[in-house]
Amino acid sequence: MKAFRLMLALGIICILISCSADNNKPNTQSGETEFKKITASDTSSQSISNQAKEKLKKREGITSIYAVNTDKKLVIAFEIKHHKRFQLASTRKDVHKQMEKAFPDYEAEVSTDKRIVLDLKELEKKVDKGKLSKKQLKKEMKQLVQLMKDKT
């Protein structure tokens, strides 16, 4: 009976491990940083966020970058390779410093949170389609920054 349970547990584990490995394959296999430049320019220029992406791309171990900017703010979210997540906090700080130095006119916000990554990805798509007015973009950015600062 006990042996059976142990086997059951082991079986579940095997399934879990194989599943999680599968899910991650596309991310690690490519080995390159996943990002794309925003081309739409009718509402507000995204050239700053494109520059930021280029800069971040040179960093080692970053798997995906998303960035959006208004004329005052620059919000960046990125993901790094899993075994580097121990240094996540210091990497984030480092990137933040680098961005503030590179774009002193902009208020830079950097996040590595999964939720922010998802939201920023959506926002990028919207901006790319050119559907967002300047005001809407500002509002969305404000919400994002607020979400980032939320602690408890």
């Binding site: 949170d113 999964k114 939720r115 922010i116 998802l118 979400l147 980032m148 939320d150 602690k151 408890t152």
Partner: peptide
């Protein structure tokens, strides 16, 4: 992960 994906929670608040 469900809270992060389907509700408005961040990694910290989840």
């Amino acid at each position: 992960t469900m809270y992060i994906y389907f509700f408005n929670f961040t990694e910290q608040t989840a």
